[in-house]
Design a protein around this nucleic acid. Sequence first.
DNA 1: AAGTGGTCTAGACCACCAT
DNA 2: TGGTGGTCTAGACCACTTA
Lengths: 240, 240
Amino acid sequence: MHNPLYRNVIARITEKLESGEWRANQVIPSEWRLAEQFRVSIGTIRRAVDELVAGRLLVRHQGRGTFVAAHTEDHYRYHFFRLVDAAGTRLYPAVQLQGFRRARADAAEAARLQLKRGAPVVRIVNLLRLEGAPAVLDRITLPAALFPGLTRAMFERRSGTIYHLYQERFGVSVIRAVERLRATAAGRAETRALGVSPGSPLLEIERLAYTYRNRPVELRVSRAHTARYSYLSEIGKSDT
Amino acid sequence: MHNPLYRNVIARITEKLESGEWRANQVIPSEWRLAEQFRVSIGTIRRAVDELVAGRLLVRHQGRGTFVAAHTEDHYRYHFFRLVDAAGTRLYPAVQLQGFRRARADAAEAARLQLKRGAPVVRIVNLLRLEGAPAVLDRITLPAALFPGLTRAMFERRSGTIYHLYQERFGVSVIRAVERLRATAAGRAETRALGVSPGSPLLEIERLAYTYRNRPVELRVSRAHTARYSYLSEIGKSDT
DNA sequence: AAGTGGTCTAGACCACCAT
DNA sequence: TGGTGGTCTAGACCACTTA
C-alpha cells in the first residue's frame, strides 16, 4: 500500500540476483532498458540501483554499465577483513588449511546458523598469516546443505578469497556480516598454531555471514594475535 | 571544474554547520528555500541533503522539516557505544568520573590528535558500569584549546552523553570515529577498577573521534571486560 | 559514433504535521 | 489549511567507455 515503487524495483532486482538469473561480474541491463522492462521511469530505477550499490550488491561503471558485485573485486577483498598494521594500512592474509571435517551441528552452531541441532555441517580450520607470521586461527562452520560436494581440495587449491570460492562454486554470495568481538585467553590450539604463550590475550571475533534475505551461511570464530595488528572499526562513515 | 553542483551545496551546508550558524536540534530552511537561496533546483538540494543525512549530520522529519543532528537524539546515544549483551541488545553505560587532570600531550597523544608535543590537554578517567557492574575503564584525552573552561564538575553533573556535553558547552560536534581494537592483559588500574584478576584478557578499544573537516577532537582508550558483553561490528549494512 | 551512467532541472502529486 | 519532506516522472545535457 504505502510501499514506494522503488522498493518494489529493489525487490525485483534482488530476486534476479538471488535466483542467479544475473550472475556475479555480469552486466545487468542498462537503466534505460530496466525502466522499460519494469514500466517505471529512469529516475525510479536510479533510486533503486543507488541503494543496491550502497549495499554492495551492484557496482556501477560509468560508460560501461552496471554489474553484479563479485568477491573478485579488490574493494571486496578487504571488505570482510579488518585487521590493519600499526600504520593503519589494510593487510591481506595468506590462508593455510589446517582441518576439514564433516560433523553435526552442536547447539551453538544450530542456533546461529538457523539449523536444526544435528544438521550436517562442515567444520574447517584455517591458519592465517600476516606478513609471513601466523596471526589468526579461524574456525569455520558451514551448513553442508548449502555447499554440496565441498571438498578439502577446493580449499587447498583455492585462488582468491574464501568468499569467492563460495560464490563461484556454490552460488552463495556473502553480502553482509555481523561480528562480535571479545578478549579471550589463548588455549592449547592457539598456543601451538600462533606461537603465543598459554593464557596470553587474544582477540576473538565471532562472525555470522549472511547472503540475500538475511540467510546465515557461515559461522566463523577467529582468534587473533593483536600485538602487531589491530581490528579497524569505523563509526559514521558511509563506507570504506 | 568537474565538481558536481551538489558537492558544492554539501560544502556550503557543512560550512553553516561548522560555523554554528545552524545549531544542533534547530530546523534548517526548507528545501524550497534552500533551492532559492543556493540558486539550484530542489532535486540538487535533495541530493546534497541525502548525503548529509546518510552521514548523520542532518535529520529529516516528514512534515516538520530538516534538523541539525544532535547528540540528544536516541539513535545517536548508541551510535558511538557498541557493547551488547549475550542476546545482542545494545546497552548504555552509567558513567562515573574517576580522574580529571590537566597535562601536556605526550608523543602518542600529540600524533593522534594532531597537536604539538607538549600542547595542553585534559586527561579524564571514567568508569563505565553496565547493568550495575563495572565493565569498562575509559581514558580520555582532549585538546585543552578546544574545550576552554572545562571543569571536573561539568563531567560530574552531566546529563546525557559525554558527546552531548562537548556539543552543548563547547560547540564541538563529534560526527565520526575510528576505532582500533586489540586484546590486552589487565594492569593494576584495571584490576582494581573492574574487579578482574591481574593479567586477565581485556578488550582494548582505541578511539579517535572527529568533528567536521576530519579534525580529531578526542582520543579515548577503553579497556573492557568482555566476559558478559561483546563489541558489535556490522559489515555491509548501510547503518544501524 | 553509439551506448552507458552522472548531473541537473521542472513540475506534479502524495503523506505527514502543525495550527 | 498551509507548509514540509517523500515519491515519481520526463527530458536535457555531460562524461566516460568501447568500437
